[in-house]
Design a binder for these strands. Structure first.
Lengths: 245, 245
DNA sequence: AGGCAATGGTCATCACCCATACCTTATGGC
DNA sequence: GCCATAAGGTATGGGTGATGACCATTGCCT
């Protein structure tokens, strides 16, 4: 009694909330996040990760566990540790080239539709927020600088600077939660993009959209910014749906 | 060397990714999620939570730890356990009335702007997605049923059925990630709403907006759905900003 | 040349939490 | 009236990871 207020059948209304409290053990989650930093290009090849003590604190895990993660990454040739003052853990440039198998395995279990939809919602929302509440002079400069960097970037670096531009917009939205969620979903998207060829023609198209997007954001044209971003996302989405279908 | 590719100063680009791997220990996170279920009204007063064994499995924690959580909730008079077959853990009706202090303390440390912005992005995005890709007959019926339930709901129940309506829309967006994120942010919003008075006048206004929103979604008018949802969110946001400023 | 300071590398201890099994209670069906 | 069943209540052993201190190495600065 006092049981069902939802006579819709056995649909599980609790599903969105009662998800596992941790995706895995601390080790796996930390590994995933460090991989995110690398995949997003937040630390470029040759760059240095924060020190072990700082990383451990920011990830909320012990240094022992963190070191196990770094050990694995080092064994796989992704990073290299150097001791002594001004030492640290350095990201090695482009050591992946993981072959079809590795790439395909990485996208197993990814709900592509979920990712693409969620990504579009966040991006369009961020663009709209930025345009709607306006940017300070400093913020506008940051956005313009990020856009400029995408212009004169070699194809090999394009993915990275493109990610930076979008991440900048997400940060400027004024919602740290949105920025964090975007970082996560974008890392997944980058993983998917690694599985398909890079078409130069798309880059040019992408560049035009970036220009229109930033223009709309800076002039406070919220609807225009949303529309530009929607098109931009639709392009990538069509590409991915086509290749991964 | 090979250090900074970002000469923008010490801005922390890693912040969105390097968040703590767990918000607290398993106990705290599980407690938070069960409280979410209650705050969202997913299990109404008098309703029964899933059995301890099922809950533990779905939260990915041991039954021992889960029982510690339930023990706390029981001590606080939020739930009550009944033994025997057809027993279980039952949510007690409205036992909070936690006084100003309790409420104010619960919203301490909540970034209100972050929450409101993130919420709007998710809601508007969900509405747009639903309208854009259309709903099956069954999904449309589910949405209409949720809307109907908000009409003839007593004020005391309004918060709950309203949450259900929005959560339904989020689920129908086709992005489970979006639905899960919305559930989380909505629980926070409900926590904030508990701190301010309930105005009947707002309810009527809200109802009209719900009607327009569902209408737009069902007719596939994406832009209209987004705009309706934007207005709807702006209303709540203004209310909360006003009272919590 | 010497030392300081920041970094990676190592270890012992301990708290938390999980897995599993079993007991107890209440309800419905035979 | 009995018993099967599903739920909460309890006890034990083991593993993972956090804490904190310490060592080893390196490069800049005095």
């Amino acid at each position: 009694m006092a049981q069902g207020t939802e006579p819709d059948g056995p649909a599980d209304r609790l599903a969105p909330v009662l998800r596992p409290v941790r995706a895995g053990n601390g080790f796996e989650e930390a590994l995933e996040q460090i991989l995110q930093v690398v995949r997003l290009g937040l630390v470029p090849g040759g760059g240095r990760l924060p020190s072990e003590r700082e990383l451990a604190q920011r990830l909320g895990i012990s240094r022992v566990t963190l070191r196990e993660v770094l050990r694995v990454l080092q064994d796989q040739g992704l990073v290299q540790a150097r001791r002594g003052r001004y030492g640290g853990t350095f990201v090695l440039p482009r050591a992946d080239a993981g072959g079809e198998d590795e790439l395909r395995r990485r996208i197993a279990g990814v709900d592509v539709e979920d990712v693409l939809r969620f990504r579009e919602v966040l991006e369009v929302g961020a663009a709209g927020l930025c345009a709607a509440h306006g940017l300070t002079a400093g913020q506008a400069a940051r956005l313009r600088a990020a856009l400029d960097r995408t212009r004169d970037a070699p194809p090999a670096e394009y993915r990275r600077v493109d990610t930076m531009l979008h991440l900048t917009l997400a940060e400027l939205s004024g919602s740290p939660t949105l920025a964090a969620q975007y970082a996560g979903v974008r890392a997944t998207v980058n993983g998917l993009l690694d599985c398909i060829p890079l078409l130069v023609r798309n880059l040019e198209h992408s560049q035009r959209q970036h220009g229109a997007l930033v223009e709309a954001v800076l002039t406070g044209d919220a609807e225009g910014a949303r529309e530009a971003m929607r098109e931009h996302c639709a392009g990538t989405a069509a590409l991915l749906r086509g290749f991964l279908a």
